[in-house]
Write a protein that binds this DNA or RNA. Structure first.
Lengths: 243, 243
DNA sequence: CAGTGGTCTAGACCACGAG
DNA sequence: TCGTGGTCTAGACCACTGC
């Protein structure tokens, strides 16, 4: 991108990075319906000529728009403005201790239960365990400034993570211990609302039947399952993010 | 990246793209604790020499790991393995019609309420409206195969989106109309659990007090607010994603 | 101040897939 | 089949920031 174009873009408080300026310029054309929904966008070579920059720079700008779902790119077919772009939000789910401390509150956790036994069939299925295999069940309550914050009810696969057997969960929460000692390669995450039953309501200090936000997460290291957990948050908890 | 390295990487079913192969190779070293939590990673130039590829390729691989939160990069300080990586999940929230139809179900929506009036102070604050300014309130129920799916209770800023006044919401849902006619530049998203009150429970066919998953979203076009909405889903709804 | 990552370029080859 | 985006390279300049 040449100097003239750059300064012109910079006037509009655009970041002084060519590919971002270009992305914002293209974005403006989409917003202003210069290129309407479903319309094709000029190819990279043409845009590079128009904006007097390298094709690589155009590629980077368009890739960014494609990552955000605003344009759709296919070889040979070219780039088109997406008709009904979905909202995309990046959720960041830190370990509970860091989330609490980042809010300026004191974190503490208490292990409510810890036993080794064959898990119920639902958990056995989730962890892909053979019948009769034992797993480690740990339930921990996390507190912020002494008040219940979240309940972590978890099963750990002892075949893939045998070290969990002797892990000092009284000192380091299962949530944090696993992040540090059992990195995963992939997994699944679900967000849901549940009516608090006694096992959840009591430790969280909520009324039975209260609406509780919960996260279910199952993680895998290559072919073997690591852990499956359900984190139930205290009433009023919200997950928020910028979009 | 030279041919020898590439074929060696490809054996492990790695994608046949140099920067992905490199990323996976680096990731393997992190998982295997060759570079432990907090440790520094060699600089880009050194890695480029070791893997016999251009520094640009190394940069791309490391950028990807940084985007995923697995490494932290700072000029001069270099690249380090993140100590407690947060889980990052990309949520994709399509318009309700597409979400329902993608599940192979028939979509229909019904407008339950539509009026223009000064909004309550909470909404007025969210939309940054002056006192006494009017806004458009629309409530629509979305159905999948005839069964309640989600309730969209929304306020639209008529100053920034005057066209909404005459929009044919009976034919195209407010959810979809806004995506097509009022693109936003930024906004906020919240995920929460709510106990269903009568206004939500009745149309959704849920028992009063049932635990309901809800999304709150407020969007802006440059400096002006566009709309704020709360989408309450039928009981049992889950947001799921791969991590 | 000096080393690191961030960015940009010009050119090249190639995989994909729409026509 | 052949235009398009995807990727890679070698080299360069620069912004940032820890030392």
């Amino acid at each position: 991108m040449n100097a003239d174009t750059r300064s012109a873009e910079t006037k509009n408080s655009a970041p002084s990075v060519a590919w971002r300026e270009l992305r914002d310029a293209l974005l403006r054309r989409i917003h202003d319906k210069v290129w309407g929904p479903g319309d094709p966008i000029p190819n990279e070579a043409d845009l590079a000529r128009e904006f007097r920059c390298a094709r690589t720079t155009v590629n980077r700008a368009l890739q960014d728009l494609a990552d955000k779902g605003l344009v759709t790119r296919r070889r040979r077919a070219g780039t088109h403005v997406t008709r009904n772009p979905a909202t995309r939000a990046m959720l960041q789910i830190p370990i509970l201790r860091q989330e609490i401390e980042a809010a300026g509150r004191a974190h503490r956790h208490v292990v409510l239960e810890r036993r080794i036994e064959p898990p119920p069939s639902l958990i056995r299925f989730r962890l892909d365990l053979s019948e009769g295999a034992e797993a480690l069940a740990v339930t921990a309550l996390h507190l912020a400034d002494g008040r219940p914050y979240a309940l972590d009810a978890r099963w750990i696969n002892l075949q893939t993570t045998p070290n969990a057997r002797g892990a000092p969960f009284a000192e380091i929460s299962p949530n944090e211990w696993l992040v540090q000692n059992a990195a995963y390669t992939h997994g699944e995450l679900a967000i849901l609302a549940e009516a608090a039953d006694a096992r959840v309501a009591e430790p969280l200090g909520a009324a039975p039947g209260a609406a509780i936000l919960a996260l279910e997460r199952t993680t895998w290291r290559d072919q073997g399952s690591v852990t499956t957990t359900r984190i139930s948050f205290a009433e009023g908890y919200r997950i928020t993010t910028a979009i």
